[in-house]
Design a protein around this nucleic acid. Structure first.
Length: 873
RNA sequence: GCCGAUGUGGCGAAAUGGCAGACGCAACGGACUUAAAAUCCGUUUUCACGAAAGUGGAGUGCGGGUUCGAGUCCCGCCAUCGGCACCA
């Protein structure tokens, strides 16, 4: 039984170099001040979205982005950068906890085992991570700082005057607790009975949990919230300077959902209360013929008349029992009930009925609307169903049987008659403001971030409760680790699992610990900062390390020593100027466009405002890799059975082939299907590169190719060499890895059938190919080192080659000659031949002369170096 | 419904407004081999005419437009994928 012969011995080469890189710490990135740190080099921080280490291990989608960043990291090192290229584990989360509930195995054990497996798989692919910087969000040494950052948020408020977060001590009002950026609220939340926890809005998809797809219902509960809405404006504005895909920026802007409009007060007939509404169309106020309160609106009880009480209560009960999915089903008919009460329209003193209906959401605006059926589709539909009056106030009205929601000229609208929509809005808003009936307002779709979970496997809140009030524990008590538990389920009464740890909960006489934990997003909000200085026990990262890796600056003028840390007010508000920078390149999937990327930006801005980090934004450049589909063109999933395991690819073709194929498939950002024969194609290419250097002898052993020679390349070869240097360099910088690989294939084809193979050319190819196929190129480099000069040291320590543009210029070029835009012939001319001479030569060509004979030449376009186009009539 | 992306051979794909299909896969033919595998060389958008070299036409989702010239720019559609979705 002999094993199938391998086209080249990748199975021996790859483990060998992986071991050597690990033992020699080839890719270790020292911090400023550490041995081997070179202050003369510029820095480059290239980051992957770290994975949740699931029990399933990696699939081929993971290494797509990781290979791209690894190529960039290796390329930048060869270009002379200090490169920070780290990896870690986003390891808190539901699957480990559910596994624990099922099996009783502690999540920490599952997590550690899974992370270890992920690490081995990643190392088998030969990624050049600095493993000494590995982080795990579940390590106490890590989440100590997650909790610490929470305390900074808890101890801050957003000052609208300065437009930034400030220590709560600077707030002079009388209820600071109501101003904190982390606060407790009794709010309707997304409760998932099957998971036994609440979820963030972002984690609910079509009324079902993102994890598991279980139904989610609305339920009022006491929860921790983070005041991300305070940053809504800045989260939109500060996207501006970022090098992100426009689509992702747009997704964030839409998620935040800024609307300009007005708040209008409607007094209620015979009541001391008034109803406040938000509208983006104050110019349609004269067309408001009724009002609608959300069923959950607190004023419903106050305004409902005794006669309507029964109907209103019945309706509210019905709505309360509905899932979010039922409520937001657009196909369903509008429903609602009259409250019996009337409001007064402030612009014309008209008496209009007040209804309740579930098409008005409590969670947006004020939870109440003025209904203008003539100019709003939803109000139109509702008015038609319940026979409510419709009055057109924006013209020109062409069809009275249709709702018109566009802009136009105000009619039937008193003081704004005849004004176009924009001016009408402005004037009526001014009028409302002058009369005290309303004011200009900006409203956002973004809600505050529901930040607590009823789970075991998450960061405990560093908070205790005493006499019904919350209070932070001291920083000295961090990290606050979760208690050991046998049973990870919520308690029978619906309390979080931590409530089972009765000893742990008791903080002191009369003080108990918070039993909620933080959501999984918490750890990933700041992990990029921890990579800068992952073992630091005294700060989330030293001032100098954070500043260096985020901005490239050494010798920080603002030196915050650890001793100064407790004296927070002194170190804050040094009003550090905003620095450009952050992570230089961040690669990950689109699925985090509005979750992780919004949360992380929010935390970063709080830390920036408080003076703890140097940049306004965390991620300067973002790239989304496209999903890899199965060979059947479907999304990979266990149930479809189309999942490709990278381990199998490595066993059959080697890690370099896996890396190369991941990049050769197509543009990084694009969605693309896996193809096994495609893997074989790049594998063959790597074997061809191997055989440029090695050949098989009679016994079937590999030895150095006899064609290798210390000769100068021919001028044609020289051109290919420099064209390849140019294209590979430019393509890597543009993240166009597929075309870079094509060019290296062209190079290899050029040198395959030659009588003498110039070693210098191979030397160049090996360096160019090294970021893509690091094992193969290191091996060939070391083999050549025994025979030829110029191969000293590891290839990872070499310098990236530069191309000579003058070598790429051809003396003679062939250009097409067109007649009326169609190619009729080709002509070979001197590169710098004048336009006149080119024209004369082109016209003299037999085919051209024949085709133009007897016709009028109306125009001749000569594009130097490109083509000639003769226009005949 | 709204927003965004994409649409090019049998397949993955390439093309600063300037020779459409680089590179790879698959297929076919040849060399090497007793044979096969591997390797190397060649052909491969399509239609018509031709024994052949070749000649001519069509062609980048569809319909228009700008231009000497459009896969690329503009207008209007269609399809697929992704996101948001009663947001007042």
């Amino acid at each position: 039984m002999s094993e199938k012969r391998k086209p080249y011995p990748y199975d021996q080469i790859e483990p060998k170099w992986q071991t050597l890189w690990a033992t020699e710490e080839t890719f270790r990135a020292p911090n400023p001040g550490q041995p081997r740190f070179d202050p003369a080099k510029p820095k480059y921080f290239v980051l992957d979205m770290f994975p949740y280490p699931s029990g399933d291990g990696l699939h081929v989608g993971h290494p797509e982005g990781y290979t791209a960043t690894d190529i960039i990291a290796r390329f930048k090192r060869l270009k002379g950068f200090n490169v920070l290229h780290p990896m870690g584990w986003d390891a808190f989360g539901l699957p480990a906890e559910q596994y624990a509930i099922k099996t009783g195995q502690h999540p920490a054990i599952t997590t550690e085992r899974n992370a270890e497996r992920f690490k081995q798989q990643l190392q088998r692919i030969g990624f050049s991570y600095d493993w000494s910087r590995e982080v795990n969000t579940t390590d106490p040494g890590y989440f100590k700082w997650t909790q610490w950052i929470f305390l900074q948020i808890y101890n801050s408020w957003f000052n609208p005057t300065t437009n930034k977060a400030e220590p709560i001590s600077t707030y002079t009002g009388n209820d600071p607790d109501s101003m904190r950026l982390a606060y407790v609220a009794e709010a309707p939340v997304n409760w998932c009975p099957a998971l036994g926890t609440v979820l963030a809005n972002e984690e609910v998809i079509d009324g079902k949990s993102e994890v598991g797809g279980f139904p989610v219902i609305r339920k009022p509960m006491r929860q921790w919230m983070l005041r991300i809405t305070a940053y809504a404006e800045r989260l939109i504005d500060e996207l501006e300077g970022l090098d992100w895909p426009e689509g992702i920026k747009l997704l964030q802007r839409n998620w935040i959902g800024k609307s300009d409009g007005a708040r209008v007060e409607f007094s209620i007939l015979g009541s001391r209360f008034s109803i406040s509404v938000f509208t983006t169309r104050p110019d349609t106020l004269f067309g408001a013929t009724y009002m609608v309160l959300s069923p959950e609106h607190p004023l419903v009880d106050q305004v409902t008349t005794p006669e309507q009480k029964g109907a209103v209560t019945a309706y509210r009960t019905e709505i309360a029992g509905k899932s979010d999915l039922d409520r937001t089903d657009l196909a369903k008919d509008k429903t609602g009930v009259f409250t019996g009460a009337f409001a007064i329209n402030p612009v014309n003193q008209e008496k209009i009925p007040i209804w309740i209906a579930d098409y008005v959401l409590m969670s947006y605006g004020t939870g109440a609307i003025m209904a203008v059926p003539a100019h709003d589709e939803r109000d139109w539909e509702f008015a038609k169903k319940f026979n409510l009056p419709i009055r057109f106030v924006v013209g020109p009205v062409e069809n009275e049987d249709e709702c018109f929601s566009g802009q136009g000229i105000s009619i039937n609208s008193g003081l704004i008659d005849g004004l176009p929509t924009a001016e009408a809005k402005h004037k009526i808003t001014q009028w409302l403001q002058d009369c005290g009936h309303g004011q200009k307002t900006v409203n956002y779709k973004l809600r505050d971030w529901l930040f607590s979970r009823q789970r075991y496997w998450g960061e405990p809140f560093p908070v205790i409760w005493e006499n019904g009030k919350h209070r932070a524990i001291s920083e000295g008590e961090l990290p606050l680790t979760p208690p050991p538990l046998e049973d990870f389920k919520p308690t029978e009464s619906g309390e979080p699992p931590l409530a089972r740890a009765t000893d742990w909960i008791r903080y002191s006489d009369g003080a108990t610990r918070e039993t909620n934990t933080m959501p999984q997003w918490a750890g990933s909000c700041w992990y990029y900062l921890r990579y800068c200085d992952p073992q630091n026990p005294d700060r989330f990262a030293s001032v100098e390390a954070e500043r260096y890796w985020m901005t490239g600056e050494l010798n920080a003028e603002c030196r915050m020593t650890n001793d100064e840390m407790p004296d927070k007010d002194a170190i804050r508000h040094s009003s550090l100027p905003a620095k450009p920078g952050g992570v230089d390149l961040y690669v990950g999937g689109t699925e985090h466009a509005v979750l992780h990327l919004l949360y992380a930006r929010f935390w970063h801005k709080v830390l920036y405002d408080l003076g703890y980090v140097s940049t306004v934004e965390p991620f300067q450049k973002l790239v989304n890799q496209g999903m890899i589909l199965g060979t059947d063109n479907q999304k990979m999933s266990k149930s479809r059975g189309n999942v490709i395991n990278p381990d199998d690819i490595i066993t059959d073709y080697g890690a370099d082939s896996l890396r190369l194929y991941e990049m050769f498939m197509g543009p990084l950002e694009q969605v693309k299907p896996w193809s096994m024969s495609g893997v074989e194609g790049v594998h063959r290419f790597l074997a061809r590169v191997w055989r440029l250097v090695m050949e098989e002898n009679q016994e079937g052993n590999w030895e150095m190719s006899s064609l290798l020679a210390d000769v100068a390349p021919t001028s044609k070869q020289e051109k290919v060499i420099h064209a390849t240097i140019k294209k590979v360099t430019q393509d890597i910088e543009a993240l166009a890895f597929n075309t870079a690989i094509s060019q290296m294939m062209v190079f290899t084809n050029e040198f395959t059938n030659v009588e003498a193979r110039p070693v210098a050319a191979l030397r160049t190819l090996l360096i160019l190919l090294n970021p893509f196929a690091p094992h193969l190129t290191e091996e060939l480099w070391s083999l050549l080192a025994g025979k030829f000069a110029g191969f000293e040291g590891q290839i990872a320590g070499q310098t990236w080659p530069v191309w000579d543009e003058t070598l790429l210029i051809e003396d003679e070029i062939e250009i097409p000659v067109q007649i009326n835009g169609k190619v009729r012939d080709r002509i070979t001319i001197k590169k710098d031949l004048s336009q006149e001479a080119t024209t004369i030569q082109a016209l003299a060509m037999p085919k051209i002369a024949e085709a133009t004979a007897g016709k009028t030449v109306r125009k001749i376009v000569v594009v130097p170096g490109k083509l000639v186009n003769i226009v005949v009539g």
